[in-house]
Amino acid sequence: MSLSREEVEKVALLGRLRLSAEELDRMTSQLRQIVDYVAQLRELDTEGVEPMAHAVEIRNVFAADAVQPSFDREQVLANAPKRDDACYRVPAVLGE
């Protein structure tokens, strides 16, 4: 199983990343190495093994359904790269 340059390009698009031709080459070779390396896991028989999502299996942590102090809107928006009153501003998505 070897990863192609086109597959890496597709993954970059899906991840909304933009790679130069040189980065794409480097990334393809690095990702290929990683994928080939992890392929050794195929030797293992995982049939009947129960999946495990976390080392500490805490289940169903509930919080009391009570109103609690939250961040002030101004505080949260203070880090926005661009804002418009109480909204985040981004380039137009529709009607280009």
């Binding site: 991840g15 909304r16 990343l17 933009r18 790679l19 981004v90 380039p91 137009a92 998505v93 280009e96």
Partner: peptide
């Protein structure tokens, strides 16, 4: 789209 390009350039 402009928004997608914004994401991609920001990350690059």
């Amino acid at each position: 789209s402009a928004l997608v390009r914004l994401y991609r350039r920001t990350r690059a």
